[in-house]
């Protein structure tokens, strides 16, 4: 039953925790392919559903020349270099790929926290991916 936790449910977002099952357990149907019995259930759950324009805090996981990837919990966000302020440059600092800002504390490297705004969402049946920007005021590296 708890198998859905930690998965995506399409447009509903990430299922964080199932609160309760709604209604009775219906009669199961056998799945011809696997032989599993399938019970269609309705349940209430806490979900994480990002929205366009939402400002999120995230942790940078990967820095590339195209931009960087960050994770807000289960959501992977890509910040393109077009969405990074133009005063930041892609450099290698101590062999770490870095988006170098005007101040050292603005540098974006792996594992730093970044506040970003989601500008695009792609919601699929089993996955949500997003692109974000750090070009607005108060966005960028947090510390």
């Amino acid at each position: 039953m708890l198998e859905v936790e930690g998965t995506f449910a399409g447009r509903f977002g990430f299922i964080v925790a199932v609160l309760k099952v709604e209604g009775d357990i219906p009669v199961a149907e056998l799945d011809d392919n696997t032989g599993f019995a399938v019970f269609p259930l309705a349940y209430q759950a806490v979900v994480f559903r990002p929205f366009k324009g939402e400002v999120l805090d995230s942790v940078v996981t990967k820095v590339t020349e195209h931009g960087f990837f960050a994770e807000c919990g289960p959501l992977t966000v890509f910040v393109s270099h077009y969405s990074i302020p133009s005063d930041m440059n892609y450099k290698f600092i101590d062999d770490e790929p870095t988006w170098k800002g005007s101040e050292p504390e603005d540098d974006i490297v792996k594992d730093v926290s970044v506040r970003l705004r989601i500008i695009g969402l792609k919601i699929e049946a089993t996955e949500i991916s997003a692109t974000a920007t750090i070009q607005d005021p108060y966005l960028g590296r947090l510390d």
Binding site: G67, F78, S80, Y82, G120, S129
Partner: peptide, 18 residues
């Protein structure tokens, strides 16, 4: 290809391909 538009430059789009 599908992806997110990361930059728009007139009639040209830069798309980050998924």
């Amino acid at each position: 290809f599908s992806g997110h538009i990361v930059a728009v430059d007139g009639d040209f789009l830069t798309v980050f391909a998924d």
